[in-house]
């Protein structure tokens, strides 16, 4: 089998007495949407934060295309191809929608040290930015300040900024949370097509979306992986039904 894009082995993280990540091993393969599910507080966000470098793990390794990246700061991991969306929207709120995405394109190009040319009149920045906005359906909103967006629009802008990075892997932390049904449907369709560009590690609470999208699912409970498998396997898994799906139904 081909080398996984992202490979996590024996990851551990504690906050004091609380074990938030308990010996997690997980692979993100080419072309897949890998859903990460689990009850609130299971450690899904904490896992994403360690992968992107916002938190440092206590033990274990994180490899991107075979390369160990645990020692790198978040910005270096982003440059190596990890694009994330935040569970709680995290934008430059004084900037317009377009400026936010142009910022992401600037980062993707690795050229932030241009001093004289206005960024917004540089087609090499605005072109990719507008394409990303069109894909998430924010094309008509580019001049609106991020602070003035609706909650759902902010979620979409998060995704547009991840798209603009043209990453090797997407790490999306509840991108649909709080979106209306229309927005969710649109995003589901977008993500489904996106997996061929780069695999997606998707944290999501909406089980309909998860079952519709996921190629594989990993279930996390109290920081530990209790099951990994196909949608059918996870649906049938007794421990999963008891520990997690049971609560939902």
């Amino acid at each position: 089998m081909a080398e996984p894009v992202l490979s996590i082995r024996g990851l551990r993280k504690s906050f004091g007495a609380l074990t938030a990540t308990d010996d997690v091993t997980l692979e993100l393969r080419r072309g897949e949407i890998h859903a990460l599910i689990g009850p609130n507080g299971a450690g899904k966000s904490t896992l994403i934060k360690q992968i992107v470098g916002e938190l440092r793990q206590d033990a274990g390794e994180i490899r991107l295309r075979g390369e160990e990246i645990s020692a790198l700061p978040a910005e270096a991991r982003a440059r190596k191809g990890l694009a994330r969306s935040f569970q709680v929207s995290s934008l430059a709120s004084e900037y317009t929608v377009l400026q936010n995405v142009v910022l992401a394109v600037t980062g993707a190009q690795g050229r932030a040290f241009g001093f004289l040319r206005p960024a917004l009149s540089d087609p090499s920045l605005t072109g990719p930015a507008r394409r990303a906005l069109a894909r998430v359906g924010l094309g008509a909103r580019e001049g609106v300040r991020a602070a003035d967006l609706s909650h759902g629009e902010r979620r979409s802008l998060e995704v547009a900024m991840a798209l603009a990075l043209e990453p090797a892997a997407f790490l999306l932390d509840e991108p649909m949370a709080g979106m209306g049904p229309e927005g969710s449907a649109r995003l589901t369709e977008l993500l489904s097509g996106l997996r061929s560009e780069a695999p997606i590690l998707l944290v999501e609470h909406d089980m309909d979306a998860v079952f519709a999208l996921a190629d594989r699912i990993t279930v996390l409970v109290y920081g530990a992986v209790i099951a990994t498998g196909s949608v059918a396997e996870i649906r049938a898994h007794p421990e999963v039904r008891r520990a997690y799906l049971g609560e939902e139904e």
């Binding site: 992107v52 470098g53 916002e54 700061p73 978040a74 910005e75 270096a76 982003a78 440059r79 694009a83 994330r84 935040f86 995290s90 934008l91 430059a92 709120s93 004084e94 900037y95 400026q99 142009v102 910022l103 992401a104 600037t106 980062g107 993707a108 690795g110 932030a112 960024a119 900024m161 990075l165």
Partner: peptide, 18 residues
């Protein structure tokens, strides 16, 4: 753009690779 981005949201700036 990056400088004012750093003022508004440092985590976001890092997430874009800057």
């Amino acid at each position: 753009l990056a400088l004012q981005g750093a003022r508004q949201n440092e985590a976001r700036l890092r997430a874009t690779g800057i």
